[in-house]
């Protein structure tokens, strides 16, 4: 279609998508209301970055997890017989998995969007015909993919140390996907908010990791004194780990429904914040 016709299409009150369909100067530009190629470009770019930093993104978390098994599983586990009828080594697997998935989701997504801000290449993202939803899909999709891959590898590593059974595999996958998606979204928000590498490290180091350690990753909250147990219930990570552990062994610190609702609520909160960020251009467009 000619450019003149393109303009007429848009001017004659056609839908915006019609304008998109014809506006491109090149016949090679398809124009759909959804820029799938743009999303794929961001996703592939992020995955390429992941491949370039495999040592940091994949090997380091796996080595750390293996060390946790050696220290907690073997050294401390030998003094604890079972927890909720599960050997201590096996009991900590869901918590450890969650710890890695949470921190990696947060780190990957936050770094992914922070780096273009830091290097200045954000200009290209903001000037491209990609919607805020598409930008989030690209970055968060890549961060979730990395986290799931990491989760699978950690599960594989754990199975070398302890026998693992998964009673509810569908729930286990659902929890893993929901958690990595929520924390990747949270990481995206963090990356947009951060103005320095120090701020970027703040949430993973000083908020998420302590909360995960105190959220029942290595123990059941039933093992705590009553007062501390009540305090722990204010920690949102407790619900994630509890639900995830239930999918493995069928036992939980809190009811499954509460765990699912908490994860969903966290996801909704992150989504709402991202919508606000793109509507206002907070720390992106001003």
């Amino acid at each position: 279609m000619s450019r003149g016709a393109a303009s007429r299409g848009a001017m004659s009150g056609g839908a915006v998508s019609e304008g998109v369909a014809t506006a491109g100067a090149s016949p090679a530009t398809d124009a759909l209301p959804f820029n799938a190629r743009g999303v794929a470009a961001i996703y592939k770019f992020e995955m390429a970055r992941f491949r370039r930093t495999l040592l940091q993104s994949l090997v380091a978390p796996i080595v750390s997890t293996a060390l946790y098994f050696v220290v907690f599983g073997s050294a401390i586990g030998s003094r604890i017989s079972t927890v909720h009828g599960v050997s201590y080594g096996a009991f900590i697997v869901p918590g450890l998995l969650m710890l890695s998935v949470l921190t990696e989701s947060l780190a990957n997504a936050s770094f992914g969007i922070y780096m273009p801000k830091f290097t200045g290449t954000i200009y290209e993202l903001l000037s491209a015909p990609v919607s805020s939803l598409e930008i989030v899909l690209g970055y968060v999709g890549a961060a979730v993919s990395k986290s799931l891959l990491l989760g699978a590898l950690i599960l594989g590593t754990a199975s070398l140390f302890v026998p693992i059974r998964v009673l509810h595999p569908a729930w286990m996958i659902a929890f893993l996907v929901l958690t990595s998606a929520s924390f990747s979204l949270c990481g995206f928000i963090l990356g947009v908010w951060a103005r320095s590498f120090e701020q970027l490290q703040f949430a993973p180091m000083l908020v998420v990791t302590p909360l995960t350690f105190l959220g029942g990753a290595f123990y059941s909250i039933d093992m705590l004194p009553h007062a501390w147990r009540t305090v722990t219930l204010f920690n949102p990570i407790v619900y994630l780990i509890s639900g995830f552990r239930w999918s493995f062994y069928g036992s939980a610190d809190v009811a499954l429904g509460v765990s699912v609702a908490s994860t969903g609520a966290f996801l909704a909160l992150c989504l709402a914040l991202i919508v606000w960020i793109f509507r206002t251009g907070y720390r992106l467009k001003n």
Binding site: A10, V16, S17, G19, V20, A23, G24, A25, T29, A31, P33, N35, G120, Y123, E124, S127, A128, P129, S131
Partner: peptide, 13 residues
């Protein structure tokens, strides 16, 4: 109509 508009624009910052 940012999609249609941005498709037409290139920027060398």
């Amino acid at each position: 109509q940012y999609r249609a508009a941005r498709r037409l624009i290139g920027l060398v910052p």
